[in-house]
Design a protein around this nucleic acid. Structure first.
Length: 878
RNA sequence: GCUCAGGUGGUGGAAUGGCAGACACGCUAGAUUCAGGUUCUAGUGCCGAUGAGGCGUAAGGGUUCAAGUCCCUUCCUGAGCACCA
């Protein structure tokens, strides 16, 4: 299909073809929209209410658009077009999440600069999206790889750095040898084969590597609280909530028998069960392991720890093997509520990474502890009672009940006891109320080339102390220095200033990451080593002469940011994509705010959607943004599966290419078919046969409006009269389509339009106004067809500005209704009756109906249910 | 294992507790056409005979005048989490 820019618009209008020939006009209307800026968002001064519809922007892969892209984009496009027709100033932008691994891997393979390939892919994506006729404001196109974009990504990072939310850690992190980089917790999947990368499904392992980490845990509470007000799918909210994993309970400190100077602190959500604690468990990595282990247990403990360390990932996550393992340390803790001696065990079912890495075990009321206690024959003491009889020796009782075997707390509820015990412990300084989260800090650096470089340099501690009080470097300098050890030297992080942003990527000789886990940037000494001006933050190459006394030796951070960085805030940039002074002007922020509707896949539920909320909330707290949450309303489109019902993939050979469908059936048919396939949120298989149905609908709509022999408006639909029922059907259709667009029920919108079309074809005449209303309803779904018909009906301008029809309540009223007559709930007859037939009349009519009377013969009517306008149900003995 | 979402014709799917299967695809028959495609008409859940009627929304039970829809139990599918104390 061609975009016919060479032919003049009017020239084609003079020689119209009569039949529905999408190849003749789809490209032409796309060119028209581009030329007239039809879908350009207007400035706030336009006086219209705003509507901001956003799609999750794509990663421009070399493979081009996948059929799943047009699915979600068509959904948002229908919404955007309907809002525009309804008089809104619509912002429907598009951009590119263009940093990322595939471009870098391509660069490694071919030596071509990732930017070159990225540009080519973007051009291809843009071409494909334009071919699909989306109502996008292309003037606002952005790419996360643009310098003018990522300078603000770097700016936000520096803000986080300034406020102590970015730090460096050397703790073990997930490293993926195949990808040559570390991954965030959110990017690692637990599979039966062990932990894998969510990209590419490669094995990952724990390695201690120096990393930048963002303190997302500081926002754990805010990120949970913020969810309540959001109009998001419940499942996604739940996912985030579970991922953050807040639990409330208490920290309890146990003295250790024979170790005066040591104590063991545990986190528990059940301080009420403290009397039921019969042993303690610490994680194999717990720092007290060595100190607590008695001489007799030394060998056994060392053996166990070695065993755990050598356990493969496969064994550790083995689903079938749930057997608990562990070893006794030989030490005892003292229960602070009753001074009982509790043996301290080591077991790998306790994780060092959660809570304090130690637990008090209450086997009577915790399933895991019960399993362990049974295995190692440890005592089980019930402290929570129950109404029904339970045997805690057989299974843990996790329900509620009055306390038993708990001394002074007996008979009290578990909840009361929680509070009382916590208070008692606090008074003795042996405990306090505490909250724990599953959420870990966000691992934010990657050992890659194709990402945003960190605007950070490393200098010595002594040089850091020399930064003048009025130095520009203090713009982003945190109160507490971020330090680490690089190549055996203690160094401190200093930020660039906003004047020096963006910090761009240097050209490199090789894109290959080093096997030691260093980024390709670490091999570019010219870029890496510089003189840094403590007064201004300026840099010059280290090969130059030292420019002045305040210029110190510095080396750049060589990691880059993860792909999530750029996608964390792109929705803000669309408001003001060319602004060089700030992310977006206050005025535009006040007008546009955040997206009114956000559509994208559910696979980002705890990645992009959590990260973006964190950054947004942080910027809100700083006063940079006016709202606390970025996405008020979120919708996930479902997957389009292959014709075989399996996920589309090259290896399965079941991939459907949007280009092919457009060529064969046209853009409108593809759009309509994707929407007609089923509910937008459902995963559903593609079926190329099914496209015939919607293609037929388009051709029939065309023939309803246009005479195929002349190409002029059809005589049948050019008058002013039509049957009353058709008018009613039109208004029903307006009502149904308008309502279902609100819930994105596009499949039922299309069904209703088909119903109308069926009725219109049967009607002897259709008024021009009814036809025009119908075409306006069709327009958001099949915009090219609608524009073409609209112009052939002699209307000027784009139909997208032609208004949205309103359902007339008066025209919807039906004078007669079909009433069903039931006997014992079974339909025996129906009658067309005036809408206002009274209950008494309905009852009499029902009883008189021969089909009903047959079933009443010789029986007494026990009950009469009469719903006026709907049904009569007569109940007789069976 | 836990949590959630589902299970409706040959297929995709419709159904504020009120005629289950709308709307399509496919199929069958007929018309149009030299033919293919297109287009049009009729039919299409199952049993029964083409009738009366009966049965039917994973299975079983319950609530109700009335259940695909609400409640309970079980089975199956999909998604997420996975020793989170």
């Amino acid at each position: 299909m061609t975009i016919s820019t060479g032919l003049g618009f009017l020239e084609l209008m003079e020689t119209p073809k009569g039949n529905y020939d999408f190849t003749a006009f789809e490209g032409r209307w796309q060119a028209y929209w581009k030329e007239h800026g039809t879908f350009r968002a207007l400035p706030p001064t336009c006086g219209k209410p705003k509507y901001y519809v956003l799609d999750m922007f794509p990663y421009p892969s070399g493979a081009g658009l996948h059929i799943g892209h047009p699915e979600g984009y068509t959904g948002s496009d229908i919404l955007a077009r309907q809002r525009k027709a309804s008089g809104y100033n619509v912002l429907h932008p598009m951009g590119w999440d263009s940093f990322g691994l595939p471009a870098e891997q391509h660069a490694i393979a071919t030596g071509e600069h990732p930017a070159v390939q990225t540009r080519r892919n973007i051009d291809n994506f843009r071409r494909q999206l334009q071919m699909l006729g989306f109502a996008i404001d292309w003037d606002r196109e952005i790419a996360t790889t643009d310098e003018n974009y990522f300078r603000w990504t770097q700016w936000i990072f520096l803000k986080l750095f300034r406020h102590g939310l970015a730090y460096v850690s050397e703790k073990p992190v997930w490293f993926c040898p195949a990808l040559g980089t570390v991954l965030a917790n959110e990017e690692v999947l637990n599979t039966p084969e062990g932990p894998r990368s969510d990209r590419g499904n490669h094995p990952v392992e724990r390695r201690p590597i120096r990393q930048w980490v963002l303190r997302i845990t500081a926002y754990a509470d805010k990120l949970i609280e913020g969810l309540d007000a959001l109009d998001w799918p419940d499942s996604t909210k739940r996912l985030q909530k579970n991922w953050i994993g807040k639990s409330e309970g208490a920290e309890v400190t146990f003295a250790i028998s024979g170790h005066k100077s040591e104590s063991l602190t545990v986190f528990t959500t059940r301080p009420d069960t403290l009397f039921g604690a019969t042993y303690m468990v610490i994680a194999p990595e717990h720092p007290l392991v060595a100190k607590l282990t008695s001489a007799e247990q030394q060998e056994a403990v060392q053996e166990y720890i070695a065993l755990v360390r050598n356990k493969s990932d496969l064994e550790r996550t083995d689903l079938a093997d749930k057997k608990k393992t562990g070893v006794f340390t030989g030490a005892y803790a003292i229960n602070p509520v009753n001074d009982t001696k509790l043996p301290i065990w080591i077991a790998d079912y306790v994780l060092m990474s959660y809570g304090t890495g130690a637990i008090m075990a209450v086997p009577a009321h915790d399933e895991r502890d019960h399993e362990f206690a049974t295995q190692f024959k440890l005592p089980i003491i019930q402290v929570v009672g129950s109404k029904e009889s339970v045997d805690v020796q057989k299974a843990a009782w996790t329900g509620d009940g009055p306390m038993v075997n708990s001394g002074r707390f007996n008979g009290k509820t578990a909840n009361e006891t929680k509070t009382l015990i916590t208070a008692e412990l606090a008074a003795k300084n042996q405990g306090k109320a505490a909250v724990n989260f599953k959420l870990r800090d966000w691992l934010f650096s990657r050992q890659r080339y194709w990402g945003e470089p960190f605007p950070i340099l490393w200098i010595s501690k002594e040089d850091l102390a020399r930064i003048p009080a009025d130095s520009a470097v203090r713009e982003f300098l945190p109160k507490e220095a971020v330090t680490c050890v690089i190549d055996g030297r203690d160094v401190c992080a200093v930020p660039l200033t906003s004047q020096q942003l963006p910090l761009t990527l240097p050209e490199v000789k090789s894109y290959q990451p080093s096997p030691t886990g260093d980024s390709p940037l670490s091999r570019e000494p010219q870029w890496l080593n510089v003189w840094f001006d403590l007064a201004t933050g300026a840099t010059v190459a280290a090969s130059e002469k030292q420019p002045g006394p305040l210029w110190v030796k510095a080396s750049r951070e060589t990691n880059t940011m993860p792909q999530w960085a750029g996608s964390c805030w792109y929705y803000l940039r669309f408001l003001d994509p060319k602004n060089s002074k700030e992310i977006a002007s206050k005025e535009l922020q006040a007008y546009w705010g955040c997206p009114d509707f956000y559509i994208g896949g559910a696979e980002h539920a705890v990645l992009h959607l959590l990260y973006a909320r964190f950054w947004h909330r942080f910027l809100y707290d700083l006063g940079v943004l006016p709202t606390p949450e970025p996405f008020k309303k979120l919708f996930h489109q479902g997957l389009i599966l292959g014709e075989d019902g399996e996920k589309m993939s090259k290896s399965r050979g079941n991939v459907v290419n949007p280009d092919d469908i457009v060529k064969a059936y046209g853009t409108d048919a593809l759009r309509l078919y994707l929407m007609f396939l089923g509910p937008l949120e459902a995963s559903k298989p593609w079926n190329t046969n099914g496209i015939e149905g919607v293609s037929r609908f388009l051709r029939r709509t065309w023939r309803l409006a246009i005479d195929e022999t002349t190409g002029k408006p059809a005589a049948k639909s050019s008058g002013t009269t039509e049957p009353e029922e058709l008018t009613r059907e039109l208004h029903k259709t307006i009502q149904k389509v308008s309502a279902d667009i609100e819930t994105l029920g596009f499949n039922t919108c299309i069904s209703q339009m088909m119903i109308f079309l069926n009725a219109a074809e049967k009607a002897p005449t259709i008024s021009r106004s009814t036809l025009e209303d119908f075409i306006r309803l069709v327009a958001p779904f099949a915009p090219h067809l609608a524009e073409e018909i609209w112009s052939r009906l002699g209307r000027d301008g784009s139909i997208s500005d032609a208004g949205w029809p309103k359902a007339d309540a008066a025209k919807l009223i039906e004078t007669t209704v079909e009433v069903i007559f039931q006997v014992n709930g079974k339909v025996r007859s129906t009658q067309k009756l005036p809408k206002d037939t009274t209950k008494e009349q309905l009852l009499a009519l029902a009883k008189a109906d021969p089909a009903v009377a047959k079933f009443l013969e010789g029986k007494t009517v026990l009950k009469e249910i009469i719903v006026p306008g709907k049904l009569v149900n007569l109940v007789v003995p069976a």
